[in-house]
Amino acid sequence: MPNISRDEVAHLARLARLAVTDEELDLFAGQLDAILEAVAAVGDVATDDIPPTSHAVPLTNVFRADEVRPGLGQQQALAGAPFPEEGRFRVPRILGEEA
């Protein structure tokens, strides 16, 4: 049933910031189609008495007490950052994608 178009692959690639060539668009469209078809098989066994779920375990309301726990110090937090500056993470300039 799934039928992923080249346009959809291009859209997904853009959202994921992946550079994809024209040939790859065709290739991935076919591959994604195959994957989605395999997953869609789940739909064959789903019946009305099985509610859709996003979790494998039937748990709700797992909460934490509002108590401060020690975190990382600044040095530790920045330990893996390639270009820390003024105690902050340095990233390339950002344009046009402000959330």
């Binding site: 934490r64 509002d66 401060v68 975190g71 990382l72 600044q74 937090a77 105690g87």
Partner: peptide, 27 residues
């Protein structure tokens, strides 16, 4: 104005030295 963040036990307070109220979850 909870004591801690939404999904981790880091302190929820305005200001402070940068990246001092952080942990693996919120990072």
């Amino acid at each position: 104005s909870t004591n801690t963040k939404m999904f981790c036990g880091c302190e929820n307070a305005f200001g402070g030295e940068p990246n001092t109220k952080v942990c693996p979850v919120c990072l």
